[in-house]
Design a binder for these strands. Structure first.
Lengths: 266, 266
DNA sequence: CCCACCGTTTCGGTGAGTGAAACGGCAATC
DNA sequence: GATTGCCGTTTCACTCACCGAAACGGTGGG
């Protein structure tokens, strides 16, 4: 996990705007603070160019200077909070997530499918929840997460094929890497109405997830409970998750203002 | 709330990057979906230019096309979630917010000061909480909110002067618009250790907030409980909020990875 | 002292970006 | 069904914003 120098020597784009945005992209999930030189190396852009663009980005409010470097600034959070797909979904879902949290005191996630990943859109957890490494805005592969399996099991078959074709990477010894086995697991999930994850994404961590449907019964989100493998009794928790997901689905169907189309891979 | 045409005829910037970013800014908190023509009018940029820039933004992933228009897309949420000032704060604070929610079942907010506003960085609420209009990413003036008063009362005196100089706009009949009265109110807050809001931002809504300090005892955030004016007993809730805020302050001081400087107005 | 690397500034050449004009499509209005 | 108005999109010759090699001053450390 500590891959060192992911520099991007190859193809620096030519459009000014694309270059500026590339600079924003350079801030990965981990690196909170980057220097000008870092950014220049990472994007493959010449130093003076980076300097100029950074100036504009700071001026805009998307970046802020620190004693030695640049960091993403609040304006980006501001903008990100306005993204409809996330905002509407979160607003509707939060009460249900709270109920689940209060009932279990475990980690509650709300996820959507984005490309070939599960994207965690909201997370509720407290002191008593088992510490797991998952973040809002975090991504995990579809095939090794409870939420991801929900999207695969309840979504269009083609979706499964694309994921299988892209390759099922191994995350833990228990990750299902054979398409045949995964298909069986998904069939079971479809029949039961919920997906599970037995230490397939992280050792010692299990989860159970249920689908949130839109009006046409396409899975547009998933709610999950995640926690310690020794402590969590998934079959016992499944009904609660399913109930919450169904209630949310019903609420979403009632509200006409939501147009939450799932997005395929680009 | 139905102000019609906030077009921006005046000064279209000349830099390509600035223009592209201007297009993102054009998406206000309310308008989820804008057409090309709208954007052109609102930014004051010629249509072909907007067309080209939108293409690049969509290609980047910051915008997505809809049947008839453009909306902010998930990548912006992704980026926004990486903003350190928000991410670290939220991560540390969430358990405490959960505890408060569970104890009260009211709306719990975590806010930071940004410019001359309180910016709500996290909000926890459930079915039982009184519905109020506040959103994550939402902004309210400092002088009429419990969290804002906390920043003013516990921050540097100069901060108060800047806010007073900018003018205390009236939000409700109870909003304190006289600098002298506000100063008295802030002195009381400083002495008690918490700030209150008696229907000053919204009729029927009251709140109590306590400061979260960094190591040098500068207020870097505020935790608040917000709810119905008839139901909430603020003095009784104040100790809980203060306790949570103090605990969070202590945790933040322990963790050396956080460098959370408050930001003044630009 | 020198070297390596940092952020920053300069400046002439040039091609990426520009935007008026025109196009084809759609819906409401006449 | 012609007209009108506004939509998104395409074209294209001009030109100025952008580029980036080179050079500069500062800083740390060997």
């Amino acid at each position: 996990m500590t891959a060192v120098a992911p520099k991007q020597p190859g193809n620096p784009p030519k459009s000014v705007l694309a270059r500026g945005l590339l600079l924003l992209d350079a801030f990965g999930p981990e690196e909170t603070e980057l220097t000008l030189a870092h950014l220049a190396r990472r994007t493959g852009l010449p130093k003076p160019t980076v300097h100029r663009l950074l100036g504009e980005l700071v001026n805009w409010g998307g970046l802020e200077r620190t004693p030695n470097g640049y960091r993403l600034a609040i304006k980006l959070f501001d903008l990100g909070e306005r993204v409809p797909r996330r905002r509407d979904m979160r607003q509707a879902a939060l009460p249900y997530l709270e109920d689940l949290y209060e009932a279990t005191h475990e980690n509650i996630h709300l996820a959507v499918a984005d490309g070939l990943d599960t994207l965690f859109v909201e997370k509720v957890s407290g002191h008593r929840s088992t510490r797991i490494m998952s973040r809002i805005g975090g991504r995990l592969p579809l095939h090794c997460t409870a939420t991801g399996k929900v999207f695969l099991a309840f979504g269009v078959p083609d979706y499964f094929h694309r994921v299988a074709a892209a390759g099922l990477t191994r995350c833990t010894p228990r990750t299902i890497v054979l398409p045949g086995l995964l298909r069986e697991d998904l069939a079971r999930a479809l029949q039961r109405g919920y997906g599970v994850n037995h230490e397939e994404s992280e050792v010692g961590v299990v989860a159970v997830a249920a689908p949130v449907f839109d009006r046409r019964r396409r899975p547009i989100a998933a709610i999950s409970i995640t926690g310690n493998a020794n402590r969590l009794d998934l079959p016992r928790l499944a009904p609660a998750v399913r109930t919450a997901a169904m209630a949310l689905s019903r609420e979403l169907a009632r509200d006409p203002s939501l147009r939450l189309v799932p997005r395929a891979a680009s």
